[in-house]
Design a protein around this nucleic acid. Structure first.
Lengths: 193, 193
DNA sequence: AAAATTTGCTAACGGGCGTTCGCATTAGTA
DNA sequence: TACTAATGCGAACGCCCGTTAGCAAATTTT
């Protein structure tokens, strides 16, 4: 039994999220969604404004969670390597807390229409820029031996953002253990792990 | 001017690939595709069997290229670290040779229907398994300090497979330089890069 | 008990979809 | 020149899509 019961609207968002993730936004029909909820397609519109309305809510809610988690790390006064560890852990925690929503956030955002799409792009850019700032810090202090922070952040996010594809809550590694593994791999590499 | 001219069918595949990548398979209509080619939608069917027909051709052609590139590396008698470098380079070369096709291969394959879908899954699994074998080798010889080859390969492929999202042929890094950068990052890490 | 809100149904709308069909036109080949 | 293949048109098909409208229960609030 769930501790807090969801409103019908929240139920719709949740079921839609899971369908959007597994079939994709464009390939999910309102009739599919209604069927999953045991109601008729028309009935959905007592609760939501449109199909894209759902997508917007999911995408921006996830964006908020990523930002909130990162804000707690941002201004800590620790070496870059340690800060990167904390950022990775925060990111992984958000990703694993709700894998379907993470999947939609990462793969279906392009079906947003303007002006949501531009807003989404901007939020994403500023998140990535914050990560680049950490890497730049580490390069400046000599802690990181690399010289291209853009490439590093791209690679970092790439490995993190595939997580939702295979992560299972019942698996043997906890989100924090996963974060530690990924941080070690990125910072020390296979040979010095 | 292109050295070899494409048949109409190959033209269709190429334009479709680029649309599938940028808008997604489901969100690309046959009328969009026809418009891009300057013909009517119905005319497409003088050359192709169906919409999914195109997707199948693109996906399996890419799969073949990945396998062919990897086969040249597979049985080389070199240390695991070196073999992994070669495998990464081969993978990156295929990814960057045709980024739109790579994008379709990586993100749109789920729109394949049976039995193609199962066949695709199987090919992908065996490719990943070959990579895991290399990592296992490195662990056994003590060259790699890590202990979970599944996780390593997942992370490796994750970072490689995001490449097509931002790689531009006219960018300042060549495919081989990119491969070298990624190999160094994976093998030595940020701190020992 | 009355009023208001939430939830849902059925039926239908306008439109877009992948695809087919019959027929023309062009280009290559013998 | 005649045959054949490649290429394309335009109209139409049956179907499915997101969404709307009007109405009826049920549930919650006052």
């Amino acid at each position: 039994m769930s501790s807090t019961q969801l409103s019908r609207k929240e139920q719709i968002d949740q079921v839609a999220t899971s369908l959007f993730k597994s079939r994709g936004f464009a390939a999910t029909t309102m009739r599919d969604l209604a069927l999953e909820l045991g109601i008729e397609a028309g009935s959905l519109y007592s609760h939501i404004k449109s199909k894209e309305d759902i997508l917007q809510r999911v995408c921006f809610k996830m964006a908020d969670e990523f930002n909130a988690a990162f804000d707690e790390v941002k201004n800590k006064d620790v070496p870059a390597g340690e800060k990167l560890r904390l950022a990775v852990a925060a990111h992984v925690r958000v990703l694993t807390k709700n894998p379907p929503a993470a999947g939609v956030f990462l793969n279906e955002w392009r079906h947003l229409s303007e002006p949501s799409l531009t807003k989404f792009h901007d939020m994403r850019y500023s998140y990535e820029e914050s990560l680049r700032a950490i890497v730049r810090e580490g390069i400046a202090s000599g802690e990181f031996k690399v010289n291209d922070e853009k490439f590093v952040v791209l690679t970092l996010l790439s490995s993190l953002n595939w997580l939702h594809m295979w992560y299972k809550p019942e698996g043997k590694m906890s989100p924090d253990e996963i974060a530690e593994f990924l941080s070690n791999l990125l910072l020390n590499g296979l040979k010095n792990f």
